[in-house]
Measured scan of single mutants.
Amino acid sequence: DETGKELVLVLYDYQEKSPREVTIKKGDILTLLNSTNKDWWKIEVNDRQGFVPAAYLKKLD
Results as ranks from 00 to 15, higher is better:
residue 2 E to A: 14
residue 2 E to H: 15
residue 2 E to I: 14
residue 4 G to Q: 14
residue 4 G to F: 14
residue 4 G to L: 14
residue 4 G to P: 14
residue 4 G to N: 12
residue 5 K to I: 13
residue 5 K to H: 14
residue 6 E to R: 14
residue 6 E to Y: 13
residue 6 E to H: 15
residue 6 E to G: 13
residue 7 L to I: 07
residue 7 L to Y: 15
residue 8 V to E: 00
residue 8 V to P: 00
residue 9 L to A: 05
residue 9 L to C: 07
residue 10 V to T: 05
residue 10 V to D: 00
residue 12 Y to S: 09
residue 12 Y to I: 08
residue 12 Y to G: 07
residue 12 Y to W: 12
residue 13 D to S: 11
residue 13 D to N: 09
residue 13 D to A: 07
residue 14 Y to F: 06
residue 15 Q to V: 14
residue 15 Q to G: 07
residue 15 Q to I: 14
residue 16 E to G: 13
residue 16 E to K: 12
residue 16 E to R: 12
residue 17 K to T: 11
residue 17 K to W: 04
residue 17 K to D: 06
residue 17 K to A: 10
residue 17 K to Q: 15
residue 17 K to N: 10
residue 18 S to P: 04
residue 18 S to R: 10
residue 19 P to I: 09
residue 19 P to C: 08
residue 20 R to D: 11
residue 20 R to C: 13
residue 20 R to L: 14
residue 20 R to E: 10
residue 20 R to K: 10
residue 21 E to T: 06
residue 21 E to L: 03
residue 21 E to K: 04
residue 22 V to I: 09
residue 22 V to L: 11
residue 22 V to N: 02
residue 23 T to R: 04
residue 24 I to P: 00
residue 25 K to A: 08
residue 25 K to F: 15
residue 25 K to C: 10
residue 25 K to H: 13
residue 25 K to N: 08
residue 26 K to G: 06
residue 26 K to C: 07
residue 26 K to R: 10
residue 27 G to A: 03
residue 27 G to T: 02
residue 27 G to E: 02
residue 28 D to C: 10
residue 28 D to F: 08
residue 28 D to Y: 08
residue 29 I to P: 00
residue 30 L to M: 05
residue 30 L to A: 15
residue 30 L to G: 15
residue 31 T to E: 09
residue 31 T to M: 12
residue 31 T to I: 15
residue 32 L to E: 00
residue 32 L to P: 00
residue 32 L to F: 02
residue 32 L to A: 03
residue 33 L to P: 00
residue 33 L to F: 04
residue 33 L to E: 02
residue 34 N to D: 15
residue 34 N to V: 08
residue 35 S to I: 05
residue 35 S to D: 13
residue 35 S to G: 10
residue 36 T to I: 08
residue 36 T to D: 15
residue 37 N to Q: 08
residue 37 N to I: 05
residue 37 N to H: 12
residue 37 N to L: 08
residue 37 N to E: 10
residue 38 K to A: 13
residue 38 K to C: 09
residue 38 K to H: 12
residue 38 K to D: 09
residue 39 D to P: 02
residue 39 D to H: 15
residue 40 W to I: 03
residue 40 W to S: 03
residue 41 W to F: 04
residue 41 W to R: 00
residue 41 W to C: 01
residue 42 K to T: 06
residue 42 K to V: 11
residue 44 E to L: 11
residue 44 E to G: 06
residue 44 E to D: 06
residue 44 E to V: 11
residue 45 V to R: 13
residue 45 V to P: 00
residue 45 V to E: 03
residue 45 V to C: 11
residue 45 V to M: 10
residue 46 N to Q: 14
residue 46 N to L: 14
residue 47 D to A: 09
residue 48 R to Q: 07
residue 49 Q to M: 09
residue 49 Q to P: 05
residue 49 Q to Y: 07
residue 50 G to S: 03
residue 50 G to Y: 08
residue 51 F to H: 05
residue 51 F to N: 03
residue 51 F to K: 02
residue 51 F to S: 03
residue 52 V to T: 02
residue 52 V to N: 01
residue 52 V to D: 01
residue 53 P to T: 01
residue 53 P to K: 03
residue 54 A to K: 06
residue 54 A to E: 03
residue 54 A to F: 02
residue 54 A to P: 04
residue 55 A to R: 15
residue 55 A to L: 11
residue 56 Y to V: 11
residue 56 Y to Q: 03
residue 56 Y to R: 04
residue 57 L to N: 00
residue 57 L to E: 00
residue 58 K to G: 05
residue 58 K to T: 09
residue 59 K to A: 06
residue 59 K to W: 06
residue 59 K to E: 04
residue 60 L to S: 04
residue 60 L to G: 03
residue 60 L to M: 08
residue 60 L to V: 12
residue 61 D to H: 13
residue 61 D to C: 13
residue 61 D to S: 14
residue 61 D to V: 11
residue 61 D to L: 11
residue 61 D to F: 13
